[in-house]
Each structure stands twice: as C-alpha cells, then as structure tokens.
Amino acid sequence: MGLLAVVGVLFVAVAFGAGRLLRPAVPTPEKLLTYECGVDPVGEGWAHTQVRYYVYAFLYVVFAVDSVFLFPWATVFAAPGFGGVTLVEMFIFLGFLAVGLLYAWKKGVLTWM
C-alpha cells in the first residue's frame, strides 16, 4: 500500500516537472489578462448574481445522484437474498434525501420569486 502511494506521488511529481520544463514560458500582457469566455474583461470584476440558480443546480445534482444510486439498487434488489436488506437501505437513503428536500422547502428555497 505504501509503495503504491509513493509510486503515485512520484508519477504526479514527474508529470508536473516535465510539464514545467517542456512548456514555453513567455508571459505577455495578453496572457496575463483575465480570460472570460473569449471576451476582453471590461469594467469592474464585481457582478451581482442570483444565488437561486446555484441552489437549483445543487438540488438537481442531489437528485441526479439519487437516480444514479437507484438503478444499481434495482438490479441488486432483484437478486435472490438481497431483497429486504437493500429495501431498508434504499428507504434510509431516500429518507435522507426527503429530509434535505423538506429543509429546502421549509426555507423557501423552492419558490421562484
């Protein structure tokens, strides 16, 4: 186990070292500018963004992870000898998600305006 960790660290160190030695390093004013979607930055760097979009994205990720776990669970649930245990485990998992959704609903996160 320790040898594998040492080999992994050495592999990363060699890769970063090779990248540093082989890349061209010619800093120009254009290279030092902040890159923003191919458009030159104009004005101040402060912009007001609605947080609710991030909350909806986070909730989407939570339920996408839920669906990723549901499909393998359905496969294992069909196997003989795993029915009761996997059913209880999935209800516990869905309970945690339901508590999170209930918390978001009670905080008013799910209302658009």
Rank of each mutant, 00 (worst) to 15 (best):
A78W: 04
G81M: 05
A57Q: 07
F96V: 09
Y53F: 13
L102K: 06
V9Q: 01
G108R: 03
F63P: 00
T34A: 13
W105P: 00
E36T: 14
A74P: 01
W73V: 01
F58C: 08
G100K: 06
G8R: 00
A104Y: 02
G2M: 08
W112M: 14
G81W: 02
F91C: 14
V6H: 01
L33G: 05
F91P: 03
L59A: 05
F63N: 10
F91G: 08
V62W: 02
F82A: 13
E44S: 13
F82R: 06
E89S: 09
A98N: 06
A15E: 05
A98D: 07
V109Y: 13
E44V: 03
V85S: 05
C37T: 14
L110A: 11
V62K: 03
A18R: 12
G38S: 11
V68T: 15
P29V: 06
G38W: 11
T86L: 06
F69S: 01
F63D: 05
A57N: 07
R20Y: 15
F58Q: 03
L102Y: 09
W73H: 15
F82I: 04
L97Y: 05
L110N: 05
V39P: 00
S67H: 03
T75Y: 08
A74V: 09
L22F: 12
T111A: 05
F69K: 01
F69Y: 06
V6W: 07
V61R: 08
A57K: 10
T111E: 14
F91A: 14
G2V: 02
A25H: 08
R23F: 04
C37P: 00
L3P: 01
V76Q: 03
T49Q: 10
V68L: 15
A15P: 02
W46F: 09
V14Y: 09
E30P: 00
M113R: 14
F91I: 14
L70Q: 06
V61P: 00
A64T: 13
G100C: 10
L97T: 07
L70M: 12
V7N: 00
K107C: 10
L3N: 12
A64Q: 01
R23T: 08
A18N: 04
P72M: 04
V88Y: 09
P41M: 11
V68H: 07
L101Y: 12
T49R: 09
R52G: 07
T111G: 05
Y35P: 09
E44F: 01
L101V: 13
S67E: 05
F93L: 11
V76E: 04
C37W: 07
V99F: 08
V7G: 01
L87T: 14
A15N: 08
